[in-house]
């Protein structure tokens, strides 16, 4: 199949066209791919792990994997799905490795004493707060960020991809390697949990 002509400006080219250029060794194309996805990928990972430094590392690891494996990318799949899949897997793997300690607002599930629970709990609104925590301190946006943080990682991935990134159910199923029905269930449950958590905001 003939390749579509490349627009003179790489910014208006499709992902597939940019990938083709990157495979040919164009550093500009590599940079363009990072420019397109650094914010959504970083935002997703940041909201998953809730730590800026760690999110930067995981997002960087994601892009390194993606760009080093461009030759194995198959153009019949959406490039964005591929990137989000790798980013989400990096975040989930990290959370599993850390056994959810990083994420638990209430403290580690393995903490046995009140001191250990306090030591492992995520302190929201503490001094030296991150950008995420600063947003959390603003009314509804902040309440929602906090409510999202309380969701199970699987629910969190689904709700973020659906309602923050605006991805279709089928794409989320591809990204998370889950059946479509499971994705719909997770999103439904996540919305229910968010509604319950945010019920006190009801006018």
């Amino acid at each position: 199949m003939a390749e579509a002509p490349l627009p003179p400006d790489l910014k208006s080219a499709t992902d597939q066209q940019v990938v083709t250029q990157a495979r040919k060794g164009s550093e500009t194309a590599y940079r363009e791919l990072v420019r397109r996805y650094e914010r959504p990928v970083f935002s997703l990972v940041f909201r998953m792990v809730r730590n800026r430094e760690l999110a930067e590392d995981l997002a960087q690891e994601t892009f390194i994997k993606v760009l080093n494996a461009l030759d194995s990318y198959r153009p019949e799949f959406k490039f964005s799905s591929w990137v989000f899949k790798i980013a989400n897997n990096a975040a989930i793997d990290h959370l599993r490795r850390r056994e959810l300690d990083t994420l638990s607002i209430e403290g580690s599930p393995h903490a046995e004493t009140p001191q250990m629970i306090e030591a492992t709990a995520l302190q929201l609104g503490e001094r030296g707060e991150t950008a995420l925590e600063a947003v959390e301190n603003k009314e509804l946006g902040g309440e929602i960020e906090r409510a999202i943080a309380k969701l199970r990682p699987e629910y969190r991935s689904c709700i973020l991809l659906r309602h923050v990134e605006g991805r279709a159910y089928e794409e989320i199923a591809d990204i998370l390697n889950l059946p479509l029905g499971t994705v719909k269930t997770y999103i439904h449950r996540a919305r229910n949990e968010l509604r319950i958590t945010l019920a006190h905001l009801k006018p």
Binding site: Y30, V34, Q60, G141, H163, G166
Partner: peptide, 22 residues
């Protein structure tokens, strides 16, 4: 809730992020 979810901000990594990746 849905409106607020859709209007949550996106976060940017450090300006040197792309250089670090490349």
């Amino acid at each position: 809730v849905l409106t607020a979810l859709a209007s949550l901000p996106t976060y940017a990594p450090k300006p040197t992020f792309a250089d670090g990746v490349l």
